[in-house]
Design a protein around this nucleic acid. Structure first.
Length: 614
RNA sequence: GCCGAAGUAGCACAGGGGUAGUGCAAUCGAUUCGUAAUCGAUAGGUCACGGGUUCGAAUCCCGUCUUCGGCUCCA
């Protein structure tokens, strides 16, 4: 635990102390530090609301002021159990009821591990520590919000109230923290997306379904053009596939019915439905018969791989043509639970910058490395350096991961190996694999510190077996190819959402929805207007995304509006410019006119016009 | 899906049982001005939707939908 985490965790104990003074019957579960603060989970009949915060903070202040020492004590398992039974853990002294969550936590501590309790004043808690020396070391703290969480993160367990707060060494640091949070909120892609008219979500279209408005579409198109160029140079071939496919396809892949929960329900043919209705078939019966494969239908595709597999498998393949790399911006649909949806970053329909590589086992390592370097090129080009790499492995205890364990071992070794060549640290996380294979994910944080998986590279020995894929080897016999699934952006929606926050809406020139706006000083002056319109058409013809502000506002008003709309470059033209055949330039915010390779073509046009002043 | 909060004009928000408000945006008019907002007028609303209580509901109650904060989930 870092110094600040220790402080915050200690503050969680102070919070529990305060709550117990107000509600002695409160039962506590866990109270760890988290990024930016801490929480404590509590079971309490009274619903804690932000209105209660002042009262709780009052008690907390008292505890901090009392400057109690955090005293550590080691206990035997029996002693600890006895204490919990008497209701003396996470309690002020003891209470009538046993400390039930603490009892449960105690029973989960492995035999032989040291059991410790910490005491501050009259409050005692089962806790591994460490803690600060005295409560008064907490210089500043604040309760921030209350939410709910399942005990031990299991949705079958009861929901507890989770009270969040934060703590710092002093007030200045805390104020800086909240100021930073306020700034971060201004970058929220949902807010900027609305203000900058990048996308909308319309109830009558459906939750979690993104409508890309013209300005947002510009960004998406620019990203697609960018990655498209990279793909061509790396030997990928473009394909297009439909948005729906027959259920049988997904039965083979394993998506249906095993992932039926996370898909839109199947589309049943009209004829079939009619017959079933005449038979008086009930809905549940229909669902059963669809699952059992007695009734056919179509599925909105939850993934593109089966379609790409069918393209690969449309004729016999020779080892000479491998690797086959099939790429598509493929739109997929997934039934995310309503509470999981969030702006552009968690949606029900999204477009992956997907590709599937079919290769020989010997080619796997080189292909994975190629994919990883593509992801790094993408992130590097956009200046996104703040990401972590996660190698997702199967969870040996879970039945979700299908296929031969020895193949899994091979695939996992390949991922681990390739991740090792990245030159950045990575973590291995069991249970994070796809159902068909392990993966290497690039994970970034949004403005609120929530993690989102963007780029991903997945190694798959499984689907080639399920679909019985093969190629003819040099030895004349049939061999099984290995598949690699990869998406450097992940999805266009999520990536764009994260990108809006990354740039705080101040996109570099090549992505900016409006690259240049021409601001004439005097709209009444016909000669000047003709000149301004000439500049506008000149820019347009050179491929610059450009508009002209036709309003009768003063120039500072026009500038203010263009700034608010985050227009990358402003060309102010007045009489003086017209006479010189020039423009006066202004660049929005920190929008730089630097030498990012992707900006260069547009920059050249702008510079050429601008330099006429010189 | 679960727990909690919220939903008032295109956007940001105020109001809180008795005529629906402000700012920005929009429209019209005046202004023609050199780098962050010129002035005036007009228009814009089933106060999310459905039901209830009441002489009267945007306001109180119930339900639904959506959004937000978490949890769970994320092939």
């Amino acid at each position: 635990m870092t110094e600040i985490e220790t402080l915050r965790h200690s503050c969680a104990h102070v919070l529990a102390t305060a709550i117990l003074r107000i509600w002695p019957e409160a039962q506590f579960a866990a109270g760890p530090p988290v990024e930016g603060g801490f929480y404590y989970d509590v079971e309490l009949a009274h619903r804690i609301t932000p209105e209660d915060f002042a009262r709780i903070e009052e008690e907390m202040k008292r505890e901090v002021k009392a400057n109690h020492k955090f005293e550590r004590e080691e206990l035997s398992r029996d002693e600890a159990m006895a204490k919990a039974q008497r209701g003396e853990l996470a309690a002020l002294g003891s209470r009538a009821e046993a400390s039930k969550f603490k009892l449960d936590i105690l029973s989960g501590i492995p035999e032989g591990e040291v059991i410790t309790i910490y005491r501050n004043g009259e409050f005692t808690d089962l806790c591994a520590g460490p803690h600060i020396s005295h409560t008064s070391r907490i210089g500043a703290f604040k309760l921030t919000h209350v939410a709910s969480a399942y005990y031990k993160g299991d949705e079958n367990n009861p929901q507890l109230q989770r009270i969040y707060g934060t703590a710092f060494k002093n007030k200045t640091e805390m104020e800086a923290h909240f100021a930073m949070l306020e700034e971060a909120k201004k970058r929220d892609h949902r807010k900027l997306g609305k203000e900058m008219e990048l996308f909308v979500i319309d109830d009558t279209v459906g939750q979690g379904l993104i409508l890309w408005t013209p300005r947002g579409a510009v960004i998406r198109q620019a990203l697609q053009d960018f990655i498209g160029g990279e793909l061509r140079s790396q030997g990928y071939e473009q394909v297009f596939t439909p948005h729906i496919g027959k259920l049988g396809l997904y039965r083979t892949s394993g998506h249906f019915p095993y992932y039926a929960e996370s898909q839109f329900p199947p589309l049943i043919e009209r004829e079939n439905l009619k017959e079933l209705a005449e038979e008086g078939c009930s809905c549940s019966e229909l669902a059963n018969r669809v699952s059992a494969g007695e009734i056919d239908g179509f599925l909105l595709k939850p993934m593109n791989c089966p379609m790409h597999i069918k393209i690969y498998d449309s004729r016999p393949r020779s080892y000479r043509e491998l690797p086959v790399r099939l790429a598509e911006f493929g739109t997929v649909y997934r039934w995310e639970q309503s509470g999981e949806l969030s702006g552009m970053t968690r949606v029900r329909g999204f477009t992956q910058d997907d590709a599937h590589i079919f290769c020989t086992e010997d080619q796997v390592n080189a292909e994975i490395r190629g994919c990883l370097s593509l992801v790094q090129t993408v992130l590097g080009t956009l200046g996104m350096a703040d990401y972590r790499v996660r190698v997702g492995l199967r969870d040996p205890d879970s039945a979700k991961y299908t296929g031969d364990p020895s193949l899994w071992d091979k695939a996992e070794a390949a991922c681990r190996n390739a991740a090792g060549t990245l030159g950045v640290p990575f973590t291995e996380e069991p249970g994070e694999a796809a159902f068909y294979g392990p993966k290497i994910d690039f994970v970034v944080k949004d403005v609120l510190g929530r993690e989102w998986q963007l780029g991903t590279v997945q190694v798959d020995y499984n689907l080639p077996v399920r679909f019985d894929l093969w190629y003819r080897g040099a030895d004349g016999t049939q061999h099984r190819p290995v598949m690699i699934h990869r998406a450097p952006f992940g999805s266009m929606e999520r990536f764009t959402g994260v990108l809006i926050e990354h740039f705080a809406g101040n996109f570099p020139l090549w992505l900016a929805p409006e690259q240049v706006r021409v601001l004439p000083i005097n709209t009444d002056d016909e000669e000047l207007m003709a000149y301004a319109q000439g500049i506008e058409s000149e820019l347009r013809e050179s491929g610059v995304r450009c508009t002209l502000d036709p309003t009768g506002d003063r120039i500072n008003g026009k500038v203010a509006r263009a700034e608010a709309e985050k227009v990358h470059t402003m060309f102010v033209v007045g009489k003086r410019d017209a006479e010189a055949g020039a423009v006066s330039l202004r660049v929005h915010g920190k929008g730089n006119l630097g030498a990012k390779p992707r900006d260069e073509a547009i920059l050249a046009v702008i510079t050429a016009i601008r330099q006429r002043t010189l």
